[in-house]
Design a protein around this nucleic acid. Sequence first.
DNA 1: CTTGGCACTCAGAGGAGAAGAGTGCCAAAT
DNA 2: ATTTGGCACTCTTCTCCTCTGAGTGCCAAG
Lengths: 337, 337
Amino acid sequence: MLDDRKLAVLRAIVEDYVSTHEPVGSKALVDRHNLGVSPATIRNDMAVLEEQGYIAQPHTSAGRVPTDKGYRLFVDRLSTIKPLSVAERRAIETFLANTYDLDDVVSRTVRLLAQLTRQVAVVQYPSLTRSSVRHVELVPIASERLLLVVITNTGRVEQRAIETHHPVSDEAIAHLRALLNARLDGCWLTDVPDALADLPEQVSVDERALATTVLSVLLESLVEKHEEKIIIGGAANLARADLSQSLRDVLEALEEQVVLMRLLGEAGDPSSLTVRIGTENPHEGLRTTSVVATGYGAGDQAVARLGVLGPTRMDYPGTMGAVRAVARYVGQILAGS
Amino acid sequence: MLDDRKLAVLRAIVEDYVSTHEPVGSKALVDRHNLGVSPATIRNDMAVLEEQGYIAQPHTSAGRVPTDKGYRLFVDRLSTIKPLSVAERRAIETFLANTYDLDDVVSRTVRLLAQLTRQVAVVQYPSLTRSSVRHVELVPIASERLLLVVITNTGRVEQRAIETHHPVSDEAIAHLRALLNARLDGCWLTDVPDALADLPEQVSVDERALATTVLSVLLESLVEKHEEKIIIGGAANLARADLSQSLRDVLEALEEQVVLMRLLGEAGDPSSLTVRIGTENPHEGLRTTSVVATGYGAGDQAVARLGVLGPTRMDYPGTMGAVRAVARYVGQILAGS
DNA sequence: CTTGGCACTCAGAGGAGAAGAGTGCCAAAT
DNA sequence: ATTTGGCACTCTTCTCCTCTGAGTGCCAAG
């Protein structure tokens, strides 16, 4: 169907279009890539590529532009992930050196990704559901108000206020805290409900109301409420990449957590690179953007995802290389914790 | 210098320009506001206003547009803060009802502000320096690694990883934790250094190294490192408000914490509204934007600031009303905690 | 001080024409 | 059967032009 030369032409079109941002014509192609044939031959090939839907003309007398389908073929078969330059590697190292806590790691990562790719970076906090409990703390902050703090092995700290509706003694709190820690230490978050199912029966009648309240809040906040936190950075890069579509739609999409979640995580093996191009995207406002994402985490197990978003006309090999490299580094850092 | 009618003309120009986004001419003015005089008279007034720098013409044959100085006079003397509509009040109440924790309050507030004003909302987390310590927690997360968690009375939770560089016994940790809590409970954050100055001498030799390390991290993270957290929302509203200046500059400015801090907090009484118009702004890229900000907090004492940013051509009375109302509501919520 | 009249200016819209890039197709060459 | 040069054709884009209309500034009269 598509012989080698036609594929080479498609690759050349994608590369040229990405670098010039202008529709590329047959003459420009033979000039810039030594294809060894004449423009007329290229035109024939282009006609075939267009017929098959890999490229398109914005208008009759213009050059060709890759379609989403064209980019897809390019990413799948015509390109190889570009390794980072020495300078880029060094940038990663200096950026991520000396991180103090999880917030630090995540916020630096998002800045780093945005800077390396010159696009919008999206980083998800390590998921709660794939972590285990390191410590539970219960602190009185008012006579009828407690603060529940859960610390996970990924270094994430989850907090939640609890209204007791009646005064609670410090002893009761201490007792419950000890009990919770004894039961939950090292416990996989998804196993928390089972581990605590019989908690109210284990405590004295006096403390039962408290235990029930705390338990419900704990379960609600950790297990049922999958509030996966996501942060973005480099939104200013959007302004540079004049998207044909209204930039506003994209900005709006980026403000919705739900959309971001689906962008990063919808499908795919957590540890391999996912590329979603243009209309392959689940969201209306992101028809002219592509997302390159991957999982990251301590060791083999991916605990969350990160990636970048940019115009469909992006440097896929370079972006993929940067995303993969950053994910690996961050994984190492987390593993070191 | 400026008689009443000239002021009325300036007010009318600001109001019309804000609502139409187009330079306003003398004829349009007398049509839309019953000023009781002819266009020619208005033209004379306009000439004076222009001479004094309150208005300007984009080009010779166009109407007038307020200058920053004109907006300033409008805000200071010609407008009254607009109270919110019933619908808006209800929106605030439903938005801020049932908030669980500080993150919740802040993230809802920023969305609320962005929605009410249709501009970019900026909310600072309650400052650490004006809070007191509620509880200190010290949790081992690896053999040579601890997590230090400080909970403040504003409900904020600060965390920091600590490398001990040698194994530490659970007893030593428990002892230090108890000591820290005894010393710091209720302690004003700014007083922490004094309260702990002699800590290393108070513990046994075995624990001294640990105590010193923990102490330095604690001081560094809470007192010296004024990392005031700020979040923004409604960036998509920027796209609607086509700024004459490159939108990119604004987006870039909004990504820098430092700039945001200065925007919100540079000057002024914490509890009164601050309006900074166009070039009054400290930052280059924000020459065509204005900021309306105020302090908020539990009770009388402001613990942080919030505000919105939009084009200089914004509805000042409405925006000021919304910002003030939201700040008050949030203050009430925090006071209830 | 206000007003009507009037000449003047200038941005923006609309149109015509020229330039140029790029295509599609055909017939000849390999 | 593929490749190639030639050529006519199609559009966009740029520039230049004119025309229109909003809005002004100024002046002399009220």
